[in-house]
């Protein structure tokens, strides 16, 4: 295949962004699609902003040029906006709506934007899909499946060069049996959440 697919994953250190990027990479290998993943480790993990990039298809570089993301998948709305430079008009921004307020707001007097203004700004630059991953994960049976919900939403976006099942199977293969059902439910709920938009 010659098409290049670029996905930017963002969020807050500790939210599982790196794990999600790793799962996408493994799914691509499973589907025999070329892939490079770039991660942030170390100092950036102590509650800091995290960015991972996943590139699939006929790619050489783990990084993408500005304005070329097919999807910006964010587990935190401000982090989606922080990485807006990666998007173009047709980029799909899929973001969790639940904010994680950085300590600079409490300690440094910085401002976390009003929700409405935040989503208005995101929508000015790309197609935005809001996902209440926390609520959906709770309904599926476990808060910890939030990222599975987000990956389900990504799978429904019609961008990945493989079927949603490949991604789901990749998620499930790394889990103990007792967590498989709840993750399957979370994934399907995530897919549904995006399709209903």
């Amino acid at each position: 295949m010659s098409k290049k697919i670029s996905i930017v994953l963002t969020g807050v250190g500790g939210q599982g962004v790196i794990t999600a990027a790793n799962i996408l990479g493994k799914a691509a290998v499973r589907a025999q699609v070329g892939v490079f993943v770039s991660e942030i480790h170390g100092m950036a993990q102590r509650g800091g902003a995290v960015v991972c990039t996943v590139r699939m298809g006929d790619v050489s570089s783990p990084l993408l040029p500005s304005g070329t993301a097919d999807v910006l998948l964010s587990t935190e709305p401000v982090e989606a906006l922080r990485n807006i430079g990666y998007v173009h008009k047709k980029t799909k921004i899929i973001t969790d709506i639940n904010p994680v307020i950085p300590f600079t707001v409490a300690v440094g007097g910085e401002q976390y934007p009003q929700t409405e203004a935040l989503f208005k700004e995101l929508s000015a630059h790309a197609q935005v899909f809001k996902v209440d991953a926390l609520k959906i994960a709770k309904e599926a049976g476990a808060v910890i499946t939030k990222n599975t919900v987000m990956l389900g939403a990504l799978a429904a976006a019609g961008v990945l060069p493989f079927s949603p099942d490949v991604l789901l199977d990749t998620i499930l293969e790394g889990l103990p049996d007792k967590y498989k059902d709840v993750n399957r439910k979370a994934f399907q709920a995530g897919m549904k959440a995006l399709r209903n938009k």
Partner: peptide, 21 residues
Amino acid sequence: NPFTSPVTSSLKLPRRPPSLC
């Protein structure tokens, strides 16, 4: 260069540096 002038946010965002846990 097709990759010039990436879009920017008109909202000021709070910094999120790493911190002691």
